[in-house]
Design a protein around this nucleic acid. Structure first.
Length: 740
DNA sequence: AGCGCCTTGACGGGC
DNA sequence: TCAAGGCGCT
């Protein structure tokens, strides 16, 4: 294995194969290359067997890319190697042994829409209003609990003094019960139940421990407590655990990622070898300086500074526009101009924004200028109604205990089984503690259902029965055709002559070809494997090679790069988004700042940042205030294309500034040095602070805001009245508060 | 069952 | 602003 093309840090990360390794990989530092080379090195030079390697990523895209690149490097196939996402890895483990913890091995996987339906059912059963207990809120609460590995009873106990949360805990308990009865797992369960299985079944744990002798985890900053625990279980014995991540790119706190996992890796494992990949191969020095300076305003981070061998590069251009329409026109004009003058092609450009709603005016402007674009995000193929209907049929065929899917299709297409009848079936099912399907099977013994409804139900049961037989002999694609035929689904759509109906038919045909493709490429060809694959993939099959400008959120852009990037809507309340501003929570603002860092570092050569004087968003026009992140950009890196400073009110709010330290050091150091100083101070005092000493009324010291008094506490959020900076909400888990 | 009016609320989004 | 879901009427 030739490692000569790697830089020293990269090489170190590859060669240090034994013991715990933390690779802090800055944006564009060749992280994927290091990981793939490391795997190849293990196999080729260290004589490690392929089955002993486990490599975990977050997205299918990353997993596929890694597998391809490893195969390319090694020149062999990697079938024996587990290179997969957390979720598909867990499914594999669970399919084998989940029966040991009382679940059915042929479980189905519920997506977020199924979750909503199930939670609504649970609320109904508990007589709770879905106005007071919004399903969305319930789901994210449950999801948060599972991410932290709280069981329903633990969760209930934690919140025994909080009436509302207690009720939510009851929903959580019932929800889990129903999932189990339906032989279903939601996405969070895939992780949670795997941890549960490994913790309770010594034999299973031993099996995987001795199998996965070398474990690698990508995007470690995005792991949740549950994922962290899973990895720890597997890696504890041999300690050959290599995690790669960038705390500065942690932007998924809102979906359970716990930045502490990367910040405290060194505490969790013994003798951790830390490698920092700081050489950036992507961007110009100007772009990196700007990114470094902005991110240095974050307190809680590992110190790291990107540098590049590339020359200085063009200054970052800042444009102030009248409103979002002018802003979009500016973007379109500049794309046209740069494409023409510099001979760039449209795929070199990306327009990045904080919220999807911002895409609209940009689309309009690009259309006016006849510039082709691809918009990422939006309704997914598998979320379409007709596809979900078909999937519900397939799921019921696979697993008749799945009440949620059964309810979805029992009267689709219409076959005269009304709401009243369905309710009766449900009642009976919960009375007898069994699935709706088993009630349907002997519906004839049920007296309070009309003969007409009984006939329809028997017809439905026959259809499903027939399809279940067909499943055993025909391939999936054929089964799908049969479903669409025998249920009359296609007939129903064909009768409808609208364009929409034709679209739906086309989508169903597209789905059949997905199934055909599956039959050709997959080793296992059964329905269950197909359904799992569909559940775990997101299918964003846009034609990526095509010559188009990319429009996407900054979140979506993570991991990608473009020669020319437009970061639009750099305004307070939009970016950082208003919720983060209003919550007054420093950790929320820091996550927004990391997002800003991600946005800036997408650019290879040219970066534009735009903002408006007035923005109409959600039907309301408001004067804009420049984003605090704009103010954090170093003067020498930017070029203001128009009179930005004159026209703008920079928010003078109590954001930014590191006051206490600023006064002390500002004369001699620049802002980023001050931040470093603060960082170092935190590191020193960290161990001495006991988080439990932070109580109501306690006098505390905050690294940025100085002295204050604790006036409120909610979970890990502490509200503090600062002497000089006013009232702020701070997450005590992430900030070092010294009790005075 | 289906249509249309009205309220609501809207960040980010992979598996 | 606008789209989706709820609700009431036919």
């Amino acid at each position: 294995m030739n490692l000569d093309t790697l830089n020293p840090a990269q090489r170190e990360a590859v060669e240090k194969t034994e013991g715990p390794v933390l690779i802090l990989a800055g944006a564009g530092s060749g992280k994927t290359r290091v990981l793939t080379t490391r795997i190849a090195h293990l196999i080729e030079d260290k004589g490690v067997q392929a089955p002993n390697i486990l490599a975990i990523t977050f997205t299918n895209k990353a997993a596929n890319e890694m597998r391809e690149r490893v195969e390319e490097t090694l020149g062999t196939d990697t079938k024996e190697m587990w290179i997969s996402t957390f979720h598909s890895c867990c499914v594999r483990i669970l399919r084998k042994d989940i029966n040991r913890i009382g679940y059915n091995r042929s479980f189905v996987i519920y997506d977020s829409a199924d979750q909503v339906t199930l939670v609504k059912d649970c609320l109904k059963e508990l007589n709770l209003s879905d106005k007071v207990f919004e399903p969305k809120v319930i789901i994210s609460t449950i999801s948060g609990a599972k991410d932290k590995l709280y069981s329903p009873s633990q969760f209930k106990d934690m919140h025994r003094h909080d009436n509302r949360m207690s009720k939510i805990a009851d929903v959580y308990a019932l929800y889990q019960d129903r999932l189990k009865r339906n032989s279903a797992l939601d996405f969070d369960d895939l992780i949670y139940k795997t941890v549960e299985l490994l913790k309770s079944e010594e034999e299973v744990l031993e099996f995987y421990r001795s199998r996965f002798k070398y474990i690698m985890v990508d995007e470690y900053q995005d792991t949740s407590k549950a994922q962290y625990e899973l990895i720890k279980l597997l890696a504890k014995e041999h300690q050959n655990i290599c995690v790669v991540g960038d705390d500065d790119q942690s932007i998924y706190g809102w979906r359970g990622a716990d930045i502490r996992n990367i910040l405290e890796f060194e505490r969790d494992y013994d003798d951790v070898h830390v490698v920092k990949l700081e050489q950036n191969y992507r961007s110009t020095q100007v772009i990196l300086d700007a990114a470094n300076t902005v991110i240095s305003n974050n307190i809680e981070r590992k110190r790291k500074k990107l540098w590049s061998e590339k020359k200085e590069g063009e200054l970052i251009k800042i444009q102030l526009s009248e409103n979002e329409i002018n802003e979009s026109d500016f973007v379109a004009d500049m794309i046209a101009k740069i494409a023409r003058e510099q001979g760039r092609t449209y795929k070199d450009f990306a327009v990045l924004y904080r919220a999807n709603a911002q895409a609209r005016p940009v689309e309009d402007a690009l259309n006016r200028s006849q510039i082709p674009y691809n918009i990422y995000g939006g309704t997914k193929f598998y979320e379409r109604k007709e596809i979900k209907d078909l999937l519900a049929y397939l799921r019921v065929i696979q697993n008749p205990q799945d009440d949620i899917s059964l309810k979805r299709i029992i009267n689709v297409p219409r076959r005269g089984i009304g709401l009243r009848t369905i309710e009766k079936i449900e009642d009976r099912a919960s009375l007898k503690q069994e699935s709706m399907y088993s009630v349907l099977i002997d519906i004839d013994t049920n007296s309070d259902i009309s003969t007409k409804a009984k006939n329809s139900i028997n017809g439905f049961v026959d259809t499903v029965g027939t399809l279940r037989t067909i499943k055993e002999v025909y391939p999936v694609s054929k089964l799908i055709e049969k479903v669409l035929e025998t249920t009359g689904y296609i007939d129903e759509l064909s009768k409808d002559k609208s364009e929409e109906a034709q679209d739906r038919i086309d989508n169903l045909k597209e789905f059949i070809s997905i199934a055909l493709e599956f039959e050709q490429s997959s080793e296992e060809k059964d329905l269950q494997t197909f359904l799992t694959g569909v559940a775990l993939s997101s299918e964003s099959s846009e034609d990526e090679e095509i010559e188009k400008v990319s429009l996407m959120t900054i979140h979506t852009s993570k991991g990608l790069e473009f020669p020319v990037v437009f970061l639009i809507g750099m305004e307070e309340g939009l970016f950082p988004i208003s919720r983060a501003v209003r919550s007054m929570s420093e950790s929320d603002i820091e996550e927004e700042r990391r997002l800003c860092y991600v946005g800036i570092t997408r650019a290879k050569e040219v970066l534009y940042m735009t903002l408006t004087q007035r923005r109409t968003l959600y039907g309301k026009t408001n004067p804009s205030i420049a984003s605090r992140f704009m103010e954090e950009l170093p003067e020498q890196c930017i070029e203001k294309l128009n009179k930005v400073e004159k026209e703008l009110t920079y928010s003078k709010a109590n954001y930014n500034v590191l006051d206490k330290y600023k006064q002390k050091y500002m004369n001699t150091m620049n802002k980023s040095t001050v931040a470093k100083k603060v960082n170092a101070t935190i590191k020193d005092t960290k161990k001495e602070t006991d988080i439990d000493d932070i109580k109501l009324g306690a006098k505390v010291h905050h690294p940025k805001f100085g002295e204050g008094t604790v006036v409120g506490m909610m979970g890990s959020d502490v509200t503090i009245a600062f002497k000089e900076q006013g009232i702020k909400k701070i997450n005590k888990e992430y900030t070092t508060l010294d009790v005075l």
